[in-house]
Amino acid sequence: MMQDIARARADTLAGYRLFDPNKRDVTIQFYIWDRLVFNHLCRIMGRHLDIVQAPVRIGGTDVSPMSWLFPGETVLEDARYTSVSSPLTIVSEIVNSLVAAPVPHHYGLVSLANDLDADRRVRTDGSAWAFNVNKFYLDPLSDQIPSERGSEIWQRKSPFRSQDFQWHQEQTRRVVRDRLRALSWIVDGLSRRLRDTLSAEAPTVGEIFRPEQPLTGVGFDGQMLYQHTRLMQAAQKLENDLLLAMPAHEREARFMSARVDRTLIEEERAACLRHYGLANSIANTAVYAFELREASREVRIKDGDFLLSFAPEDLLAQVQHETAAGFKTQFPALQQTLPIQGGDYQVSRERRCEFRSGRSTGQTAA
């Protein structure tokens, strides 16, 4: 696989450089249908820790980075892979969250691929085609090839009276190829539907397969603590990014965000502040009062919380990965009120809980 990646990288980069001589690298993304496959790949890599401990070369290619891409239980996950720009995508999790298709009981890989964009699966002669997989190689309510098929291949046996072991093995390979084509079809369909809402970019090949440089003059225990801290920080940021990727109504239902109807001004604002015993803050223009939706009244916000942001729902995709300086630049009135400072150019990594515009009756002060 590493040899295939290196070859594809060279060929793609050569094509880009015909139009852009300064192009330095290309992006890469691995698509896996479900987490069961990912966990199995991690178990396989975990059985070969020598690949992690020392670089192993096959045909002049270093294959050890694959062990970090699919970390075993005893391997500390790389922080670079724990982000919205991770090189790994579990497609079924996206399907279960965003797709509604007329597929009964279970969104299987083949059944969903046959339902998705059926009008586009047309041959040059006008006839329709589909992803056909023999039921003998399908497991109901699962996306795995039945384990009996693997056992038969392992024992060099064929379950068919009229076909030998070689035919059975080749048929299994054909099924795997058809399933991969089905996965590619689903990914392509989702990419077209989500093109306007996707904000993260795939990482480059160099970023993913470049070894992480250890700290100079730090012992093994210190290196582990440093990498663990990086991983925890990346996991916290990923949790926040996944939260912001939810629809506003889902964040509200999970009590992670509050949606407001309007900002109270003038006399309404003053009356609200007096009601909550904040009359001394009426003259302070930095204190705002909002009217909350009924469903937002139980939002998980405690007194004293300050890692919050307030923004319109329709701007979230634009500002989710924006710095404070970039956000102020987009809105000159805000920049005039709060001039750009040195810290505004840093990418925010805090856990944010957004307030969203909506409809309701409750009041609150902040």
Rank of each mutant, 00 (worst) to 15 (best):
E77P: 10
E77L: 02
D78H: 10
A79C: 08
R80F: 14
R80I: 01
Y81N: 14
Y81G: 10
Y81H: 15
T82K: 09
V84D: 12
V84T: 13
V84A: 15
S85W: 04
S86E: 09
S86T: 13
S86F: 10
S86D: 00
L88F: 13
T89R: 13
I90V: 12
V91N: 02
V91E: 01
V91R: 00
I94S: 12
V95Q: 08
S97N: 06
L98F: 07
L98E: 07
V99T: 05
A101C: 13
P102V: 02
P102F: 07
P102D: 10
P102L: 09
V103M: 06
V103Y: 01
P104S: 08
H105A: 05
H106T: 04
H106A: 07
H106Q: 02
Y107D: 02
Y107P: 00
Y107A: 04
Y107I: 00
V110G: 11
S111A: 15
S111P: 01
L112H: 06
A113E: 03
N114L: 05
D115K: 13
D115I: 12
D115G: 10
D115Q: 15
D117R: 14
A118Q: 14
A118S: 15
D119Y: 14
D119Q: 15
R120A: 15
R121A: 14
V122M: 06
R123A: 07
T124P: 07
T124H: 11
S127L: 05
S127Y: 09
S127D: 06
A128R: 13
A128D: 00
W129R: 00
A130C: 03
A130D: 03
V133E: 04
V133G: 08
N134L: 00
N134M: 09
K135P: 02
K135F: 05
K135A: 06
K135H: 08
F136N: 07
F136E: 04
Y137L: 05
L138V: 07
P140M: 10
P140Y: 09
P140F: 04
